[in-house]
Amino acid sequence: MADFLSTYGSLIVSMILAAMLGLSLYLPLMSGQLSLAGAGFYALGGYIAAILSTKVFTTYSGDLYPVSYVLIEMIVAGIAAGALAVIVGILALRLRGVYLALATIAFVEILRVLSLNIDITGGAIGIFGVPQPFGTPIEYLWIALPMLLLSMLFVYRLERVRTGRALIAIREDELAAESIGINPTYHKVLAFMLSAILAGCVGALSAHVLNTWNARQGTFDAAIGHLAFVLVGGSRTFAGPVVGGLALTLLPEALRQLAGINGLPPWLAQFLREGRLILYGLLIVLGAINFPQGLITPAMFKHHRAAKDPTT
């Protein structure tokens, strides 16, 4: 077991981080907003952690970077991402559908170009040598796993209270929601902000996990990846993006293992190793056409909920 954990430690951590990024895309989706801005906030969070840990929090005892500092960075990243999200959100969330998606793409690209050109972010090269709070990759689970569980719990609770209902009502029929007194802009910005905070925190932790950070982390490609989590995993329940994130991060590794099987024709082996993104793309197309609600549907959970309700 210990062997397995040490070999696959970083994979497991990556899977958990990806699950959270899927969840962060789910939040604006709850109110019907397709936002690709999560990648931008993820990049922002990473830069904040990278800069703080390499330039500000440079004095500490021992070899390992204190975990408490990592938590502080995550809080700073969360606040910064949240604040930026509120500003951008108030501006952009009056837009709908395609227009909103485009605006979020533009936002991500502007951030990327900025990060490529400002000194403090290390320009195109980025920031290296982000210190490690743990000796082995698997130990990151001490932070990542509780984070995932807490965010899942948060979304689970959110869907069952007033605010969550308002978000879903907006997704179902914004006009009708507004006519019963739900303020659409407030709620959309709220969902957007929560999603940004989560993405920012994940970014901050990721900077440590990856030991380096650069503008390639917050690209359009990354946003597509997150979109794939939701498309494949499911967009109607929070478990969907989580499963999508776990599965799609596991997939390339699983494929690489498959490629190592004896007797596989070399072109197939090479494809499995390197053609991962082609597969992502195909999954997105197939997902959009055949399973717009993703693989994990609310129907799977419905009968549980009804049984638990005391009023039936």
Partner: peptide, 20 residues
């Protein structure tokens, strides 16, 4: 204009939004 995917109960509960 009901919230089609929500249950009957959830639809009426959203109506309570401004009073809560």
């Amino acid at each position: 204009r009901l919230f089609g995917e929500l249950s009957v109960l959830e639809n009426v509960m959203t109506g309570r939004h401004t009073r809560t």
